[in-house]
Amino acid sequence: MENIIQITKNDIVNEGKKLLDAGAKFVTAVCNDLDEKLEVTYFFSANRGVDLTCLRYTVGKDEEVPSLTGTTLSTLLIENEMKELFGLKVKDLAIDYGGHLMLAHDSPTTPMLKPKKAEAESKGEI
């Protein structure tokens, strides 16, 4: 993957707005579980959808992160999804589904997180 721009979590709104103002379109966001931290990547496409640009930041699992929904509604569903599947603490969402966009009341919480490596080792699973 090319065009990965590493930023900090506080820059995401400004950098995202800059790309959108330049005519890019929000594509999606991906959250990755890096054991201790979460890695969030926002994808934007430009030039008739051919070129991809990624904004990537890494945060601790209990840190709050800003939402892009104040700038564009297109990130609404994916930010809600990351919030409930990964427990990423996104604040100021335009519509907050409260952790029940996808999951029902009796579903497992934050199901996409992997088991912590340290714990898995102590149980002898790795």
């Binding site: 929000f26 594509v27 959808g49 564009t72 297109s74």
Partner: peptide
């Protein structure tokens, strides 16, 4: 359509010439 991040025929119906087949 661009601001909402629409794709496919929904986007092309609004006058944006974008398609993954261009890649």
């Amino acid at each position: 359509a661009m601001a909402l991040g629409c794709v496919g025929p929904t986007l092309r119906g609004s006058g944006v010439s974008e398609d993954a087949r261009l890649t």
